[in-house]
């Protein structure tokens, strides 16, 4: 499973895209995986996950082929 990263999350991971090899089936599981691999993500004001370009909740399921992205605190405008 590929995960896109943006802004400070991209800096923390050191890459705009990472590969997740552990099987994760829910947003909550992915979040825990990411926090384990990149503990500094926990220090952010917020860390949302988007699935197929829509904000996802922790209970949402992840399917193979989903476009998954880490959304750190936004600051447009």
């Amino acid at each position: 499973m590929k995960v896109l990263l943006f802004g400070i999350a991209k800096d923390i991971a050191g890459a705009p895209v990472i590969q997740v090899d552990t099987p994760v089936t829910q947003v909550a599981g992915l979040r825990e995986y990411l926090y384990g691999r990149y503990p500094r993500l926990r220090e952010l004001r917020s860390c949302m996950i988007a699935v197929n370009k829509v904000y996802a909740a922790d209970g949402d399921a992840l399917q193979p082929g989903d476009e998954i992205a880490v959304i750190p605190p936004v600051s447009g405008g």
């Binding site: 943006f6 904000y55 447009g76 405008g77």
Partner: peptide, 8 residues
């Protein structure tokens, strides 16, 4: 926009 749009 400042709350929801993914721009950094």
């Amino acid at each position: 926009l400042k709350e929801t749009v993914p721009i950094w």
